[in-house]
Design a protein around this nucleic acid. Sequence first.
RNA 1: GGGGGCAUGCUAGAGCGGUCAAAUAGGGCAGACUGUAAAUCUGUUGGCUAUGCCUACGGUGGUUCGAAUCCAUCUGCCCCCA
Length: 425
Amino acid sequence: MDNVFEVLNERGFIKQTTNAEQVARLLGEEQVAYYVGFDPTASSLHVGSLVPIMAMAHLQRAGHKPIAIIGGGTTMIGDPTDKTEMRPMLSLEQISTNSKGILAQLQRYLNLDNGIANNEESQIASKAGRFLNNADWLLSVNYIEFLRDIGKHFRVNEMIQAKGYQQRLDRELGLSFLEFNYQLLQAYDYLCLFQKYACRLQLGGDDQWGNILAGVDLVRRVEGERVHAVTFPLLTTASGAKMGKTAGGAVWLDAERTSPYEFYQYWINVDDRDVSRFLAYFTFLPMDEIRRLGNLEDEAIREAKEVLAYQATKLAHGKAEADKAQAASRAAFGGGNLDEAEMPTTVITSERLDIGIPIMMLFHEVGLANSRSDARRLIQQGGAYINEKQCRAIDMVVDTDLLEENALLLRAGKKRYHRIIIKEN
RNA sequence: GGGGGCAUGCUAGAGCGGUCAAAUAGGGCAGACUGUAAAUCUGUUGGCUAUGCCUACGGUGGUUCGAAUCCAUCUGCCCCCA
């Protein structure tokens, strides 16, 4: 079998490494503890985080030990990397809540058996990966000791070369001292993980390269050991947009924020040019199969998109949800039976419908329009449908006459559906 | 500590006393075309009980018949000097 490093490389996960040969040899010869940091700024990860997650999963499948770090301590400061504004500082409670959500999501992809802030000695022997919060060691740091032991290894001249900082300095955006320290803290994380868990490899987005290298250097200076770094290419879609953004905002891994159906639809709707790359990143399908799918052209490429959507949804939400999403998607767009489809649904009492609901109000209420004015526009422009019939009259009142099998199917534009079910009372 | 500048809609960015719900671009939404793709074209893009009304140009208070536009003050950000 190929070395995991080769697997990752073939799938496009590798952008930069400290030393490709050494990393490959390390991964081929021993069981390596590796880590990736995640931001606890929200209670859910979004599809952008899937690149590191999938890379971790490949490594774990190859027998290496993942360590997922929640940047609880660093988030309390804010990360300047490639951001035009400071990140908000979060409270400990928020971070802890967010961490729980993130852990649950990571566990779908990885075997991480310990909980938050739980780094008992017994678990060091555990085969599963770990989930740690860097607040555990950062919060107790003593400023003077930190400066003496860690700070002395850093040169400001070098630090400000980092791209993220450079931008902030050049563009008059300003850089707070807090944020400037981020690099030291992240480097310190690596050192701690090396000392405690023999972590020898850090992975991260390519924008983190500078920070990761700072950690590699720090370990070398303090411990005299060679540790490694691998970065992932920063994913953008073929049209140049940041990965994982859609009309409605980010595509989350949390089913509460982005339903499995919407998640599935996100993948179905990717740009043709992104399909093979995404298959390599976001599924475990063998590369031969991916190449076959990637060679499909014109309409046939939808088959590849369907595979991508199904596989990605299955990983994130499980087989049952993926099946449902697929069925719903096929129903909505392939002429299948729409009533069977799983889609956002609102229950309305028959009483209300007897009176009649103005169409603008209805579209707004179920969320297909952001306001009544928005609904008005939608209707006027011919984007509103009830039971697949276009409705252009803004003064239309929806009542029981329109019911089909005790339900209504609303549609806004081409892709957004909403079902209304009537409840007797 | 001293001096100067900036703050506008989702974003960037015009406007500098009335004709401003505010140019322009990007983004979003809708329509046409299509393959639930891309590109292109068209329309639209604060809210509402809708030919009108309300809320908006960092906060507050003034000047004025009338302010995003002028003045004062507060807050935040930036630059230069020390």
